[in-house]
Design a protein around this nucleic acid. Structure first.
Length: 639
RNA sequence: GCCGACGUAGCUCAAUGGCAGAGCAGCUGAUUUGUAAUCAGCAGGUUACCAGUUCGAGUCUGGUCGUCGGCUCCA
């Protein structure tokens, strides 16, 4: 047996006998890592601490602070969860149990369903397993051995997974005590490495996410190496829930939802003010970007939907009605209406690109279980636009939209993620068309060095798309902006333009939205700002707080001046103490409070109190107005 | 749509199978107030809805609707 050279992170080279494990090296070098290391990284690859080293390597250790370490830690916790569940119910069959953002889950198939009380018992059992500090052992097996092992254990789902592993793939499993799970690893060296665990919730989940498969029971949980970190995390969750747009929407009187209209939101005056500001901002920038606005009807004849392909591809999401004995549908998308507008006149190649925008109200029959406040509703306003262009203009137009979306999201301070979705199973058009369209999107993303994830088979039925994804207060992801390339619709509606050669040509079309759905974007904004909207969006921008009745007329006079400047101003003329009025204005998250009493009347000033900063002292009305006007610009915070 | 939980006053929440209650908000009155809640009084309910069990149901059972957490779907 020879020896190997191990280069540690700090550049130190050490010689060890071949077959030494990272664990043993830790024993040798000691220090903080000895306690905190969860796995090792050799030549960039993460492996078990117990994996023997066979050649010269660059070695570093992975702890919880390392994203890979966090993942391993949570993944190992999911194994402990599965072990606990099987201890409590021998019949429980294992699904899958991966680490996810901030935690993990494990899916189980069992005859009786879990109750929230069961979770406590499971948690108790998990703590026992942790206390037992069972060594976690990796084993590599042949396909036959693996099939045999999991068949014997009655793990039908694992057997299914093994059968689908590509030939030649190393099959490994991890054992801890009586428990064994099919798993690629790596894992922590023993269950005692895990410290603080918490099971969070229960849910049903289809096996492998497919509706025709049996529904398994999923347990979500999380774990941390320190109890205080777990507690902080739970605290953060509680804080995040306070930002929930459904809660703030009610408290701030922005909107409401009613049993009488599930999924169809009602907007109240303060909510409408915000929406109108969002739309005003949108119109301003779309006009600048060369868009023209139209409006098309909500109800359109069946024939149109047959022509567009929606009747075949989107029927289960549509609402229908009949008028004078003919069939009509409520529009789930705006495009077919736009097609009719395009075809009302001849177009020259000189007219292209033609950018036609529509703030279109669409209705879709979403499954009842998917409705979620304003985030997922059954009717929503898309800030839609359809761009008709020459094939040579496609990339330029997509680039323009990428820039527009980026500008909009930056104005609100949103971080976003980009996805490219490709051809779905149920698609119109030829493979070649799809490939061409998909690579066009891909190229623009790459040319503009935008990071993106590919979402295979998730495109629209008429073309591939680029999606822009935002997160809500609980880090749930919501698709907002989207750019969809469409070679189908122009074909279906026989769109053409007259080219330089005097002949008819087919234009290319893009569907795109920036906000996505106004409702969803609004909801995300509520959570993003925790209800404390910047001045330009705030339903009430400033409130006068007169100290006593004798200051009322002064407040009215000054308020009038601000209103003339277009500010949204109110006066709290109730017979209450200032402290009371301040509290109320603060709870309503009004950006500015203007306290007026004897002193202010005498000096012809207002005492300005800012929502975030508190008392700013007395100012002349002009000074305040100047500041307010600055803050009225949506992009005030942009460089 | 599927799995699970939940549904009491506008909101937040109480009430062993035995008279449906509190705080906040609302209304009325008093107080004229200086940087996050003045005091008093009044009113507020078909306990989501429909059946059933029971002498008696907010509470137990079944169904419907809705909401919440997921799955699936999607802006």
């Amino acid at each position: 047996m020879g020896s190997i050279k191990v280069t540690l992170k700090d550049g130190v080279e050490k010689e060890y006998p071949e077959g030494i494990t990272p664990q043993e090296i830790l024993e040798d070098i000691g220090g903080r890592l000895k306690k905190e290391a969860l796995a090792a990284r050799i030549n960039g690859k993460v492996i078990d601490l117990k994996a023997p080293l066979k050649e010269n390597v660059q070695l570093s250790f992975v702890d919880f602070k390392d994203p890979e370490g966090e993942k391993i830690y949570r993944h190992s916790t999911s194994h402990v969860l599965a072990q606990a569940v099987q201890r409590l119910d021998r019949e429980a069959k294992l699904g899958i149990g991966p680490a996810i953002t901030d935690g993990f889950y494990y899916d189980f198939d069992l005859s009786e369903s879990f109750s929230p009380e069961d979770l406590e018992k499971v948690e108790e059992e998990m703590n026992k397993i942790i206390k037992e500090d069972l060594p976690v052992q990796r084993k590599e097996l042949s396909r036959e051995e693996a099939l045999d092992l999991f068949k014997k254990r009655g793990e039908d789902y694992k057997v299914e997974l093994i059968e689908e592993l590509p030939p030649g793939e190393t099959i490994s499993c991890y054992e801890q005590g009586e428990f064994v799970d099919l798993c690629a690893g790596p894992h922590v060296p023993s269950t005692g490495k895990i410290k603080s665990i918490k099971l969070l919730n229960l849910a049903g989940a289809y096996w492998r996410g497919e509706e025709r498969n049996p529904m398994l029971q999923r347990i979500y949980g999380t774990s941390f190496p320190k109890k205080s970190h777990l507690e902080e995390y739970l605290q953060r969750l509680e804080e995040a829930k306070k930002r929930d747009h459904r809660k703030l929407g009610r408290e701030l009187d922005l909107f409401s939802l009613h049993e009488e209209a599930p999924g169809f939101p009602f907007f109240h005056p303060p909510g409408m003010t915000i929406i109108e500001e969002l739309l005003g901002f949108w119109r301003e920038h779309h006009e600048k970007a060369g868009y023209q606005e139209i409006q098309t009807p909500i109800i359109l004849n069946r024939k149109l939907w047959e022509q567009s392909g929606h009747w075949d591809h989107y029927k289960e999401n549509m609402y229908f009605t009949s008028i004078d004995e003919s069939d009509y549908a409520i529009k789930p998308m705006n495009c077919p209406g736009v097609m009719l507008v395009y075809n009302t006149k001849m177009h020259s190649y000189r007219d292209l690109p033609l950018r036609i925008a529509e703030l279109g109200l669409v209705h879709r029959h979403e499954l009842s279980g998917t409705l979620h406040g304003l985030m997922r509703v059954r009717c929503f306003t898309q800030d839609d636009a359809h761009i008709f262009m020459l094939p040579s203009q496609v990339k330029g137009e997509i680039k323009n939209i990428l820039d527009l979306v980026d500008y909009f999201y930056k104005v609100f301070g949103f971080q976003y993620r980009v996805e490219l979705s490709t051809r779905p199973e149920k698609a119109m058009g030829s493979e070649e068309m799809w490939n061409m369209a998909t690579s066009a999107l891909r190229e623009v993303l790459e040319e503009n060095s935008i990071e993106y994830k590919v979402n295979e088979g998730e495109g629209a039925f008429y073309g591939p798309k680029i999606d822009f994804i935002l997160q809500d207060c609980l880090k749930r992801e919501w698709q907002c902006g989207t750019i969809q390339l469409d070679f189908q619709m122009p074909e279906k509606f026989d769109l053409f333009y007259i080219g330089e050669d005097g002949q008819k040509h087919r234009p290319v079309m893009i569907h795109r939205v920036v906000y996505g759905a106004i409702e969803r974007f609004f909801a995300l904004l509520i959570e993003h700002y925790a209800g404390a909207f910047p001045l330009w969006l705030a339903p009430v921008q400033a409130v006068f707080l007169p100290i006593a009745d004798r200051h009322l007329s002064y407040a009215r006079e000054k308020a009038e001046l601000l209103k003339e400047e277009g500010l949204r101003v109110e006066i709290d003329d109730r017979n209450e103490k200032v402290g009371y009025k301040i509290r109320e204005a603060q709870v309503k998250k009004i950006p500015y409070m203007l306290v007026v009493g004897d002193k202010e009347m005498e000096s012809d000033q207002v005492a300005v109190r800012k929502r975030e900063e508190g008392d700013l002292g007395p100012q002349g009305l002009e000074e305040f107005l100047e500041q307010a006007k600055k803050e009225r610009k949506p992009d005030i915070n942009l460089p």
